[in-house]
Design a binder for these strands. Sequence first.
DNA 1: TAACTATATTACTTTATAGTTATATTCGTA
DNA 2: TACGAATATAACTATAAAGTAATATAGTTA
Lengths: 112, 112
Amino acid sequence: MKKKEELSEEALEMIASRFRLLSDPMRLKILHTLGDQEMNVTDLVGATGAGQANVSKHLGIMLGAGIVSRRKEGLNSIYSVSDETIFELCEVVCSRLKKQLETRQNALSGAF
Amino acid sequence: MKKKEELSEEALEMIASRFRLLSDPMRLKILHTLGDQEMNVTDLVGATGAGQANVSKHLGIMLGAGIVSRRKEGLNSIYSVSDETIFELCEVVCSRLKKQLETRQNALSGAF
DNA sequence: TAACTATATTACTTTATAGTTATATTCGTA
DNA sequence: TACGAATATAACTATAAAGTAATATAGTTA
């Protein structure tokens, strides 16, 4: 029954926003560093080499979007990835990029 | 054999850039409008309601990134989506967003 | 309570980019 | 060849967001 529906501005904005979350190298680095572990902010700062305020801000943004979760333990904030689809998305993108580069290499293979 | 490899800055930037392409509502609208068809710029302008220069610019960006392709026919530039993974990514995001909103609704269901 | 530690937030600067207007380019046609 | 149409591009403006330094907040410990 579903035909080519017109996507509402609101829907487009929600989807775009989710992609926007992933469009920053530092956030990807944080997510990749987290992986399936729990880590506090200080350790993430050490692992990523970014500034504390910057890491904290990125985590706050991702927390708000519901892709990481936080639990407090004393002074520490311990974060983990709560949205596993993130990694699925990254894999799809990464595979596609590899294939694309491979195709380009082949296109040049006979030339000069 | 693959351990938790450190992702290079370059790799992170490439992946982030791909997500950045999808982080704009107008580009998503263009991609969704295209679907599996071929369309020229004028028709896309009509279908999206955006300005000609704007549509043209977005198409140029996506062409450069290899997610749409272009063929010329007389005065027309006819575009189509050349990277089907785009739709896969959008579906994953969209499903996840739905589930997330559903969860939030349930969280409020007993309250007041 | 005072000092310390971990995290969050605020204010600011800088950069990237979306949209727009005007113009250039390219091809078709009278 | 001159004109018109479709698309691309350049220049500009406005906005959003990343990074940073300074500060606030909250828990911990001497």
